[in-house]
Design a binder for these strands. Structure first.
Lengths: 246, 246
DNA sequence: CCTGCGCCTTGACCCAGATCAAAGGGGCGC
DNA sequence: GCGCCCCTTTGATCTGGGTCAAGGCGCAGG
């Protein structure tokens, strides 16, 4: 997965330039953020944190894909968030984690110790402002996802997921870039199933169905070609405007 | 629906005492909040705002019940939030609404003009802090709801809804109060169906099922008696701790 | 008192997606 | 090259909840 950083704010020294936390920081503030940050990398499949764990760091995703999941003892699992580069993990003001966080591909995080980070929040109001904005965006995304889970058909769910991936891969800051027809899926069929509230068999069948109907073409099972984004959009069941997704 | 205000912070002159926005405000700050607030009442069934509307006020619910809904053109509707007293509507920093907001019972809102409210946010950092906290709580609740929508059975969904209502009605600030066995439902079967991603027929059948199994007793169709909360909890499919729900 | 209207319940049937089961690949160690 | 393992696809069958249709029931208005 590649991200255009051309239009990203130029926070020094961080690969994603703290886009998550300091879009409006001045140099002095950046220095202070840099003082308390450190990087951490997790292998694909590794558990980053588990429900109930103490949360003594917050972090933003620099590269790779991670998932937030909620599970019931009997094995049923629902993904409740997909973390792609620039997404933020952890919440100031709460000490324990509500979900399982798992690295799907190799993941690098830019971490901040929670305590000093919270201290900085008080001094740098627009970081807090930015966090509020991000939390509200995530809330909107979660609510769109509720519509998907509660009311969409399996085919609409798959199409919506592909649109989401396409948007996130190709328009990191809102502008179109690169090849809009080739999409590399960062997650397995099982992860998709957990995201969509489906079984892997149904996910697989819907992929086959979309392929047979010419909406997508498959190249291996991690690469999707989308000949026409409009056609795919029609399959999502969303109104024309689409709206923000995760 | 009644709320215990005994332990609520003592912000003057507002029925819910701005619990949502100023748990930590001092007198001066309260005066400034009071200067820009006003009340508005909506009749049951009335539309408070629609998707796409300009959002020039933010508000907290003083009394009554309202819903946030997302709809697809073909009529499928998913409720994405239930607004009970002390809940907050609207988001600083975004001008248009993403959902339809409807009054379910008669609703009174304590409103603030968005612009002056945003101005106050900058000057009163702990209001911003409180908003962030609330947004993150709502996000947790939305994610729990995603587990319900994606992975729970119809019976578990109904049981979860009843537990949610029971918690919200009886423990507004965490402490138990009043009669834990009688629950008055503020919403119709249709509203429940839209909340749970079910049809009204299924909702009705599940109520009948729970009644026949002695988990609940019905008195008319808006009043539920819960002989044993533990039994109901077991039907929700949640792990023991339960966790926060909306 | 009857009638109409909203809401809710119940019944009969159907179907999308789950479940159970059996093959494909494709990559990697040996 | 060979076998193993994991992921994915496909097939056959089952079922929970949707759909369609027909009553209850309470209540407001005539």
């Amino acid at each position: 997965m590649t991200l255009s950083l051309a239009a990203a704010p130029t926070c020094s020294s961080c690969p994603i330039r703290h886009r998550a936390v300091c879009a409006r920081c001045d140099d002095d503030e950046l220095v202070r953020l840099n003082e308390i940050k450190f990087y951490k990398t997790y292998a694909a499949g590794q558990t980053i944190a588990m429900r109930g764990d103490a949360l003594d760091v917050v972090a933003s995703v620099v590269s790779g894909t991670a998932t937030l999941e909620r599970a019931i003892e009997d094995g049923r699992t629902q993904m409740v968030g997909l973390l792609l580069p620039s997404d933020f993990i952890g919440r100031p003001g709460r000490a324990t984690l509500q979900y399982d966080v798992t690295a799907v591909s190799e993941v690098t995080l830019c971490c901040f110790q929670r305590k000093p980070f919270e201290a900085l929040l008080i001094e740098i109001p627009h970081v807090q402002e930015r966090l509020l904005e991000m939390a509200l965006d995530e809330l909107d995304a979660a609510r769109d996802w509720m519509l998907l889970l509660g009311r969409k058909t399996a085919r609409e769910k798959i199409a919506s997921l592909l649109m989401l991936m396409a948007k996130r891969t190709m328009h990191p800051d809102g502008q179109v870039m690169g090849d809009t027809s080739r999409l590399e899926l960062p997650i397995s069929r099982e992860t998709m199933a957990n995201f969509l509230g489906l079984t892997i068999e149904t996910v697989s069948r819907q992929f086959t169905g979309l392929r047979k109907d010419g909406v997508i073409a498959l190249d291996g099972n991690r690469v999707v070609h989308i000949p026409d984004l409009e056609t795919l959009l029609m399959e999502t069941g969303d109104d024309s405007d689409g709206g923000p997704l995760i």
